[in-house]
Write a protein that binds this DNA or RNA. Sequence first.
RNA 1: GUGAUUGUAGCUCAGUUGGUUAGAGCGCUGGAUUGUGGUUCCAGAGGUCGCCGGUUCGAGACCGGUCUUUCACCCCA
Length: 455
Amino acid sequence: MAQKPSIPKGTRDFSPVEMVKRNYIFDTIKEVFQLYGFMPIETPSMENLSTLMGKYGEEGDKLLFKVLNSGDFLSKINEDQIREKNSVKLTTKISEKGLRYDLTVPFARYVVQHRNEIDFPFKRYQIQPVWRADRPQKGRYREFFQCDVDVIGSNSLLNEVELIQIVDQVYKRLQLNVVVKLNNRKILAGIAEIIGEAEKIVDITVAIDKLDKIGLENVNKELVDKGISQEAIDTLQPIILLSGSNSEKLAKLKELLFASEIGMKGIEELETVFTYLSQLDVQIEVELDLTLARGLNYYTGAIFEVKSKDMEFGSITGGGRYDDLTGIFGLKDVSGVGISFGADRIYDVLEQMDKFPSNTGITTKVLFINFGEKEESFCLPILAKLRANGINAEIYPDSSKMKKQMTYANNKNIPFVILVGESEVEEGVVSLKNMESGDQEKLTPDQLIERLVSI
RNA sequence: GUGAUUGUAGCUCAGUUGGUUAGAGCGCUGGAUUGUGGUUCCAGAGGUCGCCGGUUCGAGACCGGUCUUUCACCCCA
């Protein structure tokens, strides 16, 4: 057992059966993306660490996989630096590349780097793996796929609305019941401003984000721990406990935040989005959730999160608007908004709910049983013809025992096998056997093609 | 990063308070069946009990370390 090869913690192999299911998800998502005019790009697995560091907060920096410099990476390090045992400092000297942590930051880098070739607004999608060095857990892997759609170079809230439509379409096609949670960073900023703790906005949002998980009492406790004044916490209570319909919540928020310019801007943005949604008759459930914060601190406007209604799980899709992500790379005043579908979590939900289409398992339609050299040369031209007609077909490569060949067809879920023995070769026909019913009939090659094309 | 948890055949798992040769089901291979799979019956192969060290006359079982699995926290897809 110990000698057996293995793969790193939090990574996975995907079998053919799993790949067929995964591709079903990717294909569905891709189709919808393209329906809305998004085009694909890809970026390298590795980015320069300078591109990645500092974009995901302190926590994110720790979760970056760093790539050791090639060559004698210790040659420039002196004894003192090693003895100091400061990993962070040493890391910058021996590693200058890292695996991408998400697709949004590499995309921002891409946009800045190729700004002269790009027509704005730029709508792209990107489906690639990302890597995070955190501990694996339920629905959490160290290598996982994200499916990102972003539009950059447009401030219009119509983009936010289209993203919600995309979410609606994707999950309709995947037949999953989901709810879209919607919030706006400006409202959160407004709240922080109103209660007089504007600088602590991150601590406040992280705390109230946990409301439905740990309850009001523990949220308040955490706020106290973070040094928020009791007065501010008291002012916060009616805000985080807001209930009712989306429009009721917005109406109450207006009263509470009227003194905050940024807060009112956020409310206005949300109202616009909701107006669009009703005009477009979007059916998906969209809920204004003030406790939705999302850790990534580059978000500046709308924040989205999608949760499965059938299953207790983390979010399966998330995103938001970022006004200045490209600014970090030297391109100012370009706003983007995007969302990311977590393919691996969607897979887990579909699997749990048994919502994968059943026919995705069939790959080969017909298998030629191999009887030997003579029969083989009779079969090969027919096999080529079947393939030319778009029929997935294969021949068993060895003239093994029939039982073994039939079992192969069985295990691979192949619905038909073709038997050609001495007598068939003489008659110039093939025997087509339906593996489900067991029925068998003799057909000429032309009849065979006609039959298989029609099924 | 913190706290738990798991590891025995290809897979899913048994294995008593430490005691000879470590078991089952499924799968696999062969046969019953030399041109017919799924069902049935018979036989067989397959394990340094995650790894390293320790306690003991004796360890799959106890202890320490390490890796791995799963889970919670942190954070997040």
